[in-house]
Simulated scan of single mutants.
Amino acid sequence: MKLGILFSGQGAQKAGMGSDLYQSLPAYKETVDKASEIVGYNIQEVASDETKISQTAYAQPAILTMSHAIISALGDALPVPVAGLGLSLGEYSALTASGALTFDQAVAIIKDRGAYMQTVGDANPGKMVAVMGDDQKLVENVLATLQSEGKKVYPANYNTFAQLVIGGVAADVDLAVEKLTEAGIQRMVELPVSGAFHTPLLKDAATQLATRLTGEKFNSFKYPVYSNTTGDIFTQDTLYDTLTQQIISPTYFAQAVQNMLDLGVDTFLEVGPSETLVKFVKKIAPKSVKRYAITDLESFNTVRDMLIAEGEETK
């Protein structure tokens, strides 16, 4: 098995996430309790509060904590991955699992990052729409034309090679949807988000994060982690610049997955509240590539047993 590990991003959260894991797995509970001490509130209680968990400021620390708690609970059952990848916020989970960030450090950073994005997003409300279709150049051209007319609408997430999320000022996104419909795009879906993430509308949050990350120490990697922003592997030297640009730059998840496949990954495992990323992988990778997700106690037990069996076979 050549494992690629994926870490859920914001939007994956849901009320009650991780509750059965918290009640059943001591290592999971220990990780969540440690994060709760750092942020100053009970993360598991927040994860069960439908109103709070929908807010950026609370969702980001909760998702990062859940993802890392799953890794901690898997322990030695988890083989060293060939590479890691997280979607947006999930990059911090990936960097933590790889050793580039300590868990305490990541939780503290994400608490502040989530607060910056919440405040700036509230002050600069936006909208995001997923555009389905494999002619992403057409979408880019329509947006470029609108931008030349002063409209604030941008490519935000290249999730698969047939799904590109656009974002910006709500009225401008609505105009883009109209223009894309005229250009022949048949399917578009508005996303339930509070802001236009990964667009210039979040520039003030990026500025605040740049200041916040100044002086942070980054460690060496136990295994490679791919960046959504560049599509390439993070290095200690590029971490600061890449993470500060990430908030306002498009994510290239599809391209990063393809790079992992080119590296030889034949099995993907997503950890976090949802199976969104392995569903994206299904649209990118060959059918022979295996896909798993750990989102609750049942899936944890199933995947852990599979990993242990695989490990025994390779001894």
Rank of each mutant, 00 (worst) to 15 (best):
Pro81Asp: 09
Thr199Met: 14
Phe161Thr: 14
Gln60Glu: 05
Glu190Tyr: 10
Leu180Thr: 00
Thr267Gly: 08
Glu312Ser: 12
Pro61Thr: 09
Ser93Ala: 04
Val153Met: 00
Ala256Gln: 03
Tyr92Gln: 07
Leu297Arg: 09
Ala115Trp: 05
Val289Ser: 05
Lys315Ser: 13
Leu64Phe: 12
Ala115Pro: 06
Ala293Thr: 10
Lys151Arg: 03
Arg212Trp: 05
Gly264Val: 12
Gln147Ser: 02
Ser194Asn: 05
Met117His: 06
Gly9Lys: 04
Leu6Lys: 05
Gln44Asp: 12
Ala256Ile: 03
Gly114Ile: 01
Ile284Asp: 02
Glu312Asn: 14
Lys179Ile: 09
Tyr292Trp: 14
Ser54Glu: 11
Leu21Met: 12
Asp33Gly: 05
Asn228Tyr: 02
Ser288Pro: 11
Asp172Thr: 00
Pro286Arg: 04
Val153Ser: 01
Gly272Lys: 03
Lys52Phe: 13
Lys14Glu: 13
Leu243Ile: 13
Val82Tyr: 08
Ile110Gly: 00
Pro192Arg: 06
Lys287Thr: 15
Met260Ser: 12
Ala285Cys: 11
Met306Trp: 09
Lys29Arg: 15
Met306Gly: 03
Ser288Thr: 15
Leu25Val: 03
Asp266Pro: 12
Ala15Asp: 03
Gly90Arg: 00
Ser274Cys: 07
Leu143Pro: 00
Ala254Trp: 14
Gly231Asn: 01
Lys315Trp: 09
Thr235Trp: 13
Gln163Phe: 04
Lys137Met: 10
Lys222Tyr: 08
Gln246Val: 10
Asn141Ala: 12
Gly86Met: 07
Ser249Ala: 14
Gln245Met: 11
Asn124Ser: 06
Thr235Asp: 12
Gln186Val: 13
Thr199Pro: 15
Glu313Asp: 11
Tyr240Gln: 15
Leu6Gly: 08
Ala206Met: 13
Gln245Trp: 05
Glu50His: 07
Ile284Val: 09
Pro250Leu: 03
Gly184Tyr: 05
Ser88Arg: 02
Asn157Trp: 12
Ser54Met: 07
Leu209Arg: 09
Leu143Glu: 01
Lys34Thr: 14
Asn141Asp: 15
Glu275Thr: 15
Gln255Val: 12
Lys111Ile: 04
Glu50Gln: 07
Gln208Arg: 14
Val120Ser: 06
Phe234Glu: 13
Leu191His: 10
Leu297Thr: 09
Ile110Thr: 01
Val278Phe: 04
Phe7Ser: 02
Gly133Val: 08
Ala309Lys: 15
Val303Ala: 03
Ser288Gln: 15
